[in-house]
Design a protein around this nucleic acid. Structure first.
Lengths: 148, 148
DNA sequence: TTATTTGCAAATAGTTTGCATCGAG
DNA sequence: CTCGATGCAAACTATTTGCAAATAA
């Protein structure tokens, strides 16, 4: 079942935060872009194109921060460039990013469960392999690189 | 067998590059800090403390770039913060970084060989799991987080 | 009313770039 | 002598912060 803008807004409210137009707009964008990789910049411009209102980037970052604290949003880093935000329900996968063309694929985080156990046994670390993407070459770019 | 500063310098020379004091100093620092995680900033200050000469950070970045192009250096990203550089011989491991205290552990890249195959089969991507570190909590910080 | 939020502008971190000068070959 | 390398300063990307003005409750 999909999380709605109201779910996000209610979560903010239950954290004792005030519900402002800016926060409402950010929540609406996030809820309306399920499954996408949203950056702070795209959220900023989506808010503008969706509502006609201009809000500041710092406001976006602050809103995203609150949502993360509330546990309703997570961010991760796909290679270089800006962080991407998504709903936690979409978090259980590892992003694989083509360093040449930027293509993104996802692999279930479960495929790394054994490795996470290995790391715990070897180092004591409890790792989260989803927070940073894994770079590589997509099939097309790998072929292009070979042919070169 | 350890790579020496002269090995690095020779590689630059064989790329047709000129051997300057700045490049010599950078090579010396890298060869003298085997197995360490060098950032551009530490290399810059090491050059200063080792030789007394001040070189510019852009010169450091440019030298590191040339060495990477020559295949004698690689960089990777451990969580947020600056990139770290090391010799390729030390590249075959995945860095695991504590997001709370910054502790770093290494796991052999071989432990992910099966996963790399899985990713190739599932997505066609040829990934390099060593370029980005994996975040998590070290044993101590995980215990502290539990106890909280 | 009044504490929270906001927008703005400036600071920050890491890295890159343009350009005149310098120096290796 | 000549072209590549350097230093400098400025640009750049992504993000954070200080602060006075605006506003939700």
């Amino acid at each position: 079942m999909h999380i709605t803008a109201d779910d996000l807004i209610d979560a903010l409210r239950s954290q004792g935060l005030r519900i402002t137009e800016a926060r409402r707009a950010v929540c609406t964008v996030i809820a309306g872009r399920h499954g996408q990789h949203l950056t702070a910049a795209t959220i900023l411009s989506d808010v503008h194109s969706d509502t006609g209102n201009t809000i500041d980037q710092s406001t976006v970052y602050r809103a995203l921060d609150e949502l993360e604290k509330a546990g309703l949003l997570v961010h991760c880093h796909l290679g270089h460039g800006p962080a991407v935000y998504h709903l936690p329900s979409e978090a259980a996968h590892v992003h694989v990013v083509c360093e040449r063309c930027g293509a993104i694929a996802s692999v279930s985080a479960g495929s790394l469960r054994g490795w996470v156990d290995t790391v715990r046994a070897a180092t004591g670390f409890e790792v989260d392999p989803t927070h940073f993407g894994v770079t590589g070459l997509c099939a097309d770019c790998a072929a292009a690189a070979d042919g070169r």
